[in-house]
Simulated assay, not measured.
Amino acid sequence: MLYKFGFSQYESKVYETLAQTMQPMDATMIVKYSGVPKAKIYEVISRMVEKGMVLESISEKKKLYTALPIPLVVEKLTAEFQADIQELERQKAKKEIVDDRVWSLKADASIHAQIKQMLLEAKNSIRYSSWKDDFTAVLPILEEKEREGVAVEALSVGEVRSELKNMAVMEPNEQHVTLERFRLLIVDDAEAIFAGMEDGSWQAIKTRSQPFVRVFTDYFHHDVLLTKITTKYNDVLMNDKEIMAQLLQLRY
């Protein structure tokens, strides 16, 4: 009976023999009725006692044994089975391998498709920044994700009309000679993609590597903060040539 639950054949025979009688039995009687070899009986009984399937007692200097009642066996095996399932789930989570490689991607259409897919799969948070035209292309997704409860932070280079609650807009001027086109997306604090122009063509890198994701997240917050500062104190900064010259060297 217990053989199907991972017990050995001898263990199953010992339990069945004890369960079929109302009277406690000693090792000699168990050997007689179970068919377990005498040389093995104490080893088998000891294992069953350790597993909680057999109870032992000493009466008149003789060890007697009885079986755990079947209803309790069912409860015990069920509880252990559920515990094993939970442990298996925990082990599965522990062994889940994160792909921390850095992938390169080329072609504007492919990069846009990748960004769109990442946005649609976002569960908790989105941080996205890009130039106005690229921003407008994904704006409906950003607004829908925010309505679904995803935390969205955004930065647009160029004014965009949007319903987003947490959005910054940076208006470049003719002095921003080093400002280059870019796209940056961080999803769920777990995956990032950064795209830029090189020799007139879009190129991007995508990664789940946490050090890179954290760097890109800091990069995003850096851009947002600088945008807010330069917007709020534009008149003051424009009159300070030294600070303005340094600010214009930044990519934001």
Rank of each mutant, 00 (worst) to 15 (best):
L120G: 10
I70R: 03
S34A: 06
M170H: 14
K232E: 13
E43A: 15
R208M: 11
P140L: 00
F216Y: 15
I141A: 00
D84I: 04
M167H: 12
E50Y: 14
E16A: 06
L64H: 08
A245P: 00
V73S: 01
E143N: 00
Y252M: 08
L68G: 04
K40Q: 11
K62E: 07
F5I: 01
D189V: 03
H112W: 02
E87T: 11
F216N: 15
M22G: 10
V152I: 10
I30F: 05
Q23C: 10
E242A: 11
L247Q: 01
W202H: 02
A137D: 10
N173T: 04
K13P: 07
Q210G: 04
M238Q: 15
K94W: 04
I186T: 15
P172A: 00
L120A: 14
L179C: 10
W103Q: 08
Q23S: 13
E242L: 11
K92T: 14
M167S: 04
G158Y: 00
D223F: 07
A107P: 00
G35N: 06
D199H: 10
K62A: 01
E153C: 09
I70P: 02
A195Q: 09
A151W: 03
I85N: 02
V236L: 15
T207V: 10
S8P: 04
D218H: 13
A245K: 14
P69F: 06
V98Y: 02
L72K: 09
V224F: 01
Q117P: 03
G149F: 02
K51T: 14
Y252I: 08
L184Y: 10
K206I: 13
V49R: 09
V138W: 06
Y15A: 00
K38S: 06
V150A: 06
F81M: 04
I205K: 05
G6E: 08
E153Y: 12
A27M: 09
S162C: 07
H176G: 01
D26Y: 15
K123N: 12
V150H: 06
G6T: 09
I45R: 06
A168R: 02
F182R: 12
T21Q: 12
E50R: 15
K92G: 04
R214S: 13
S46N: 14
R183C: 07
K95E: 12
G6A: 06
G52M: 03
P71A: 02
V157W: 03
V102S: 01
V224E: 05
V98I: 14
E16I: 03
E174A: 08
M25N: 10
G196P: 00
Q117H: 14
K232C: 06
F194M: 11
K61F: 05
